[in-house]
Design a protein around this nucleic acid. Structure first.
Length: 750
DNA sequence: AGCGCTCAGCTTTTT
DNA sequence: GCTGAGCGCT
């Protein structure tokens, strides 16, 4: 949770306490290019900032410099980040340099900033001031309803797919009316899009994409608004610019085109959000839109040792032979990269746990020095199990998010519906929680009845219930609906007088939520615990006046993510996905599951044009460059996936790191990815295996001498027959122990 | 309306 | 291995 006071303070224009930081203090310790970027006075500025090059530092110093020495008032300055956490940190760091005046800066994510603007400009847009924000879950629920209404089969048209298409359209500023009609699927999407928009508008809801779309609409259609906001944001700074998409690009230009005080920071090598519509051209073509832009390249890395940085460069340029070095470091040498192949994901986790304990003793490191990075959330499980068993404290970032838990969503839906009784999605969620004998049929009928009639929310859901006699609602459901209405009305009558935490107590009490979740199971207990936690988070908003607090609380919870809650000073090993780890760094990094199908992900293997593969590469690059001192890359020989164990192959990325940079510890065998030409063949073989399986034959026996095209001659140490394969441990004369698949490995008997 | 059963499909994602 | 949709029964 962010600081609610921060939002409020910057909206009220009190006299700022501006501390004019002395120049030396702002510029202290900056290198040449960093200083150039900070001291650039006016006009467009493009900063290419490689991993670990002190980008955040430059951005915050620049803001401080602008404020302290260039007479820009903090509230005339907009800085956009991609996470709330980054925004919070930036504000805190600027505050250290320029004092409390920093609270007046507009610092936030695109979305959070959009909400602030839209709440002020709701009227101009014909938008309800009480708009609620639909998160991904609500969006999915809304789409399911839409698919139902249109009698579309959810198996053939998965809500996620339709939702993605609609989201993409919004990000490209394509309206339902202008949605292309190239094929049948387009037509389905277009129809859903139309209906989805109607449902959202009627519910007084905006989804994440809408926040940006409406902001653009405001600036494009209302000249006074454009003039006003352009004037307000005399300086616009954008972090992670390589990950901006089209609508964000348009927004930035609308705001900055005139005064041209635009500073963007980015690194194309860390662009990992292509699926979200991120377009690297935004940063690469910036000079076209802003001729004469000053370009600064930050190429010195302050984080990572040379060996690790070199490994990263090779993966990025997919070549073990030559890699363009875009970054340099003074931390020459350093530990080599350790690569290991474990038998399966459990042993992979055991290895990591062993290393953590070993380094803790040997190098006197704390648990928080370590991070385990993986491609998919599902991989965290094995690590959680092993770490818990060994009593190694860990922090899991992401996964099943707090905000997505059923009980949390239920309680929030109550608050949202009380705040905005037009919200059909929240209504449908809670009307039968706890059981009131109002099924989906009745709930739908109420929503449908409210939708009849002209204009937006002509009749509120509550009005419809109060009138009674709703077409399609069975007589038996009327009484429970009416008692639900009375409950909500009674909540609405007190909402302006209670602090958020009190309101939550009141809802839980009145609705009987505790009894509802308390089912005697451990899970029930966990749900109650989560309700209490939610109440605790709401307490942070108790300092605001009650009539504003609920809105602030609901907005905040709609826009938080799990990384936002990540505390850099916390204790414990960090478990986190590659996507979420961007921007963090750790002394020791374990990048795990470096396998074909996982990293690069299977989805990228299918894609013909290779753009997804390039992104996997950058994802791997991001992971590697998180490490300060030590980097481990691990993969497994077999991996448990979808409930069954499958053979796994070391990632091609491993083969792209020169041997000179790698070392293998005594345990396990160094993974060697198959030669490039073999990928297709091996993967075909693997999928054929899934078909009627030829019973595996024991072809080798211990002691037998064999030869392998890349490992040379060796002797079979052990052979095990599994259900689908013969597994071999072979000791090669030159390359040591390897685990091989008897059916797949090109082994010749000697 | 609600329960239990079976079966399919999926696991990439800053807000 | 888990979730969610669909179905039939009560």
């Amino acid at each position: 949770m962010g600081c609610p006071a921060g939002n409020k303070l910057s909206q009220t224009m009190t006299a700022p306490e501006l501390r004019r930081a002395p120049l030396e203090e702002v510029l202290a310790g900056l290198n040449g290019p960093q200083r150039e970027a900070v001291e650039h006075a006016e006009g467009p500025l493009l900063i290419f900032a490689g991993a670990g090059s002190g980008k955040t530092r430059v951005l915050t110093s620049r803001i401080a410099w602008l404020v302290a020495n260039h007479k820009v008032w903090p509230d005339r300055l907009l800085a956009v980040t991609f996470t709330n956490k980054a925004a919070r940190e930036m504000r805190a760091r600027v505050e250290r340099l320029v004092g409390a005046g920093a609270q007046q800066m507009w610092v936030g994510t695109f979305h959070a900033t959009a909400v602030r603007v839209l709440r002020r400009e709701a009227e101009r847009l014909g938008l309800s001031k009480q708009f609620v924000i639909f998160d991904e879950d609500d969006t999915r629920a809304a789409l399911k309803r839409v698919l139902d209404d249109l009698h579309l089969d959810q198996k053939r048209y998965p809500p996620s797919l339709i939702g993605h298409a609609i989201s993409q359209a919004k990000n490209e500023l394509v309206t339902p009316g202008s949605y292309p009609n190239r094929n049948y699927f387009d037509e389905i999407v277009r129809r859903c899009y139309v209906r989805y928009e109607e449902l959202l508008r009627r519910s007084g809801g905006l989804d994440f994409d809408d926040l940006l779309v409406f902001w653009v609409r405001l600036l494009q259609n209302h000249e006074e608004a454009l003039a006003k906001w352009r004037d307000r944001f005399r300086h616009v700074l954008v972090d992670e610019y390589q990950d901006t998409n089209h609508v964000q690009y348009v927004l930035v230009n609308l705001l900055a085109q005139e005064h041209r005080n635009l500073a963007v920071v980015g690194d194309v090598d860390q662009s990992i959000h292509g699926l979200r519509g991120a377009d690297m051209r935004n940063i690469m073509d910036l000079q076209k839109g802003y001729p004469g832009a000053k370009v600064v390249r930050l190429a010195q890395n302050y984080r990572t040792s040379q060996a690790i940085l070199d490994a990263a460069a090779h993966v990025l340029r997919h070549s073990a032979e030559r890699a363009e070095k875009r970054l340099w470091t003074e931390r020459l040498g350093g530990e080599k990269v350790t690569a290991i192949q474990a038998y399966n994901e459990v042993e992979e986790a055991e290895f990591v746990a062993d290393e953590i304990e070993r380094l803790r003793r040997r190098e006197n490191r704390g648990y928080s020095d370590f991070a385990i990075l993986y491609r998919t959330n599902a991989q965290s499980r094995a690590f959680e199990d092993v770490l818990a068993r060994r009593r190694i404290p860990y922090r899991l970032v992401g996964g099943i998010r707090f905000w997505e838990r059923r009980e949390v969503k239920d309680l929030l839906a109550y608050l949202r519906f009380v705040f905005n009784p037009a919200d059909a999605i929240s209504f449908a969620r809670i009307v039968n929680v706890p059981r009131r004998k109002v099924g989906p049929v009745s709930a739908d009928a109420v929503v449908a009845a409210a939708a009849v009639g002209e204009g937006l929310a002509a009749l509120s859901l509550l009005d419809v219930i109060e009138r009674g006699d709703i077409p399609g609602v069975p007589r038996a459901a009327l009484a429970p609906l009416e008692s639900f209405r009375r409950q909500v009305e009674s909540l609405r009558s007190v909402v302006g007088a209670l602090h958020p935490s009190e309101l939550i107590d009141h809802v839980v009490e009145l609705i009987g939520l505790e009894a509802h979740y308390q089912d005697g199971t451990l899970q029930g207990e966990a749900r109650l615990e989560n309700l209490r936690e939610l109440r605790g988070l709401a307490e942070e908003f108790d300092t605001l006046p009650p009539d504003e607090a609920l809105e602030a609380f609901l907005t905040e919870v709609a826009l938080v993510s799990d990384v936002d809650a990540y505390d850099e000073n916390g204790e414990g090993v960090t478990l986190i996905t590659l996507h979420m780890v961007k921007g963090l760094e750790f002394p020791v990094v374990f990048l795990v599951g470096v396998e074909e199908g996982l990293l690069p992900h299977a989805r990228a293997l299918e894609e013909p044009d290779g753009s997804q593969m390039a992104e996997e590469r950058r994802l791997c690059y991001v992971g590697i460059t998180r490490a300060r001192d030590r980097l481990y890359l691990s993969c497994a020989f077999r991996r448990h996936l979808y409930g069954r164990s499958q053979p796994a192959f070391p990632s091609r990325f491993l083969g792209e790191i020169p041997q000179a940079l790698m070392s293998s510890p005594g345990t396990g065998a160094a993974p060697v990815p198959p030669p490039r030409s073999e990928y297709r063949q091996r993967f075909t073989e693997r999928s054929v295996q899934a078909a009627p399986v030829p019973p595996p034959v024991q072809r080798f026996k211990a002691g037998e001498r064999v030869e392998h095209p890349s490992f040379g001659a060796g002797v079979v140490v052990k052979t095990t027959l599994t259900r689908t394969d013969e597994e071999l441990v072979v000791k090669f004369d030159a390359k040591g122990l390897k685990i091989l698949s008897g059916t797949l490995a090109p082994l010749k008997k000697l």
